[in-house]
């Protein structure tokens, strides 16, 4: 039992570090999801099924969806800005 807990704790530490050192946002979200899975396991093994259930339900769909939407929005904003600048350039050139 204690071994199991210690193992999962080490897993959590490693995955968390790995998430932080992933620099590309989309990949980071995938890593974060994996980290959420391990974290849910940790909560469960520490006998907190309520917390584990929260982690699972939030971490499965809602959290990645939020992140993905934000990333898509940032990407869109950047594209829009670029397009606007390009059109301005064109106008200036004309």
């Amino acid at each position: 039992m204690l071994v199991l807990q210690a193992t999962i704790l080490i897993f959590v530490a490693i995955t968390a570090t790995a998430v932080v050192f992933t620099r590309q946002p989309v990949r980071q979200v995938v890593g974060l999801s994996f980290y959420g899975i391990i974290l849910g396991l940790l909560f469960f093994i520490l006998q907190a099924p309520d917390v584990a259930l929260s982690q699972i339900t939030i971490g499965a769909v809602a959290l990645p969806l939020m992140f993905m939407l934000s990333l898509a929005k940032i990407r869109r904003d950047a594209e829009e800005r670029k397009r606007r600048e390009e059109s301005e350039h064109r106008r200036e050139a004309a």
Binding site: G40, I56, A60, V61
Partner: peptide, 27 residues
């Protein structure tokens, strides 16, 4: 606590779908 496994089983699919959709379409 079987509920947890059930929740996981139901929701994993949705999670995969989120990534699949967004990677395909926008990112």
């Amino acid at each position: 606590t079987y509920d947890l496994a059930l929740a996981m089983a139901l929701l994993t699919f949705g999670g995969g779908l989120v990534f699949a959709r967004f990677l395909e379409r926008w990112l």
